[in-house]
Amino acid sequence: MIADLNQHTVEVILSNELGYERIAMDCSASFAKIIGCPADRIEDLKTVVAEAAMNAMQHGNQGRANAKVTIYMGFKDDTINVAVIDEGEGIRKFPPKPDIAKIIDNIDPPIGIGLFLIKQLADQVEFKQRIYGGHVVKMAIKIKRTG
């Protein structure tokens, strides 16, 4: 279970515009610097925030121009907790781990790379439908990775 975002919380609300994920990414980097996160984990955090925000825009909100993506960031017990909320219905079927050899040979479609990176770089990931509508991806990033 990923901690609730009740300590040192930052909120970023984005229009559903591809490219704006960089705003959330830069905010996450600033937040991580303030709490003393090492540079390598800041880079990991930036990637997971950007990829989750892009997934929310493209798949959650299905590109709808009037939709929003809301991102919360908090810090507790040496862990940065991030929640990325969209207005969609969540992931019905998770794509398999991308197999680059099959993608290159045109056997598999080039999908699931963002989700794969999130799972690789975050220490914990949860996908949940929200009671009052929308979907949330919660991610925990320990500022010092063990193992």
Partner: peptide
């Protein structure tokens, strides 16, 4: 630079051509 999963997809297309 910023490289995201979409950009990685584009690079994979180039790798497919070179292969």
């Amino acid at each position: 630079i910023y490289i995201n999963s979409g950009g990685i997809g584009v690079l994979i297309q180039i790798l497919a051509h070179t292969k």
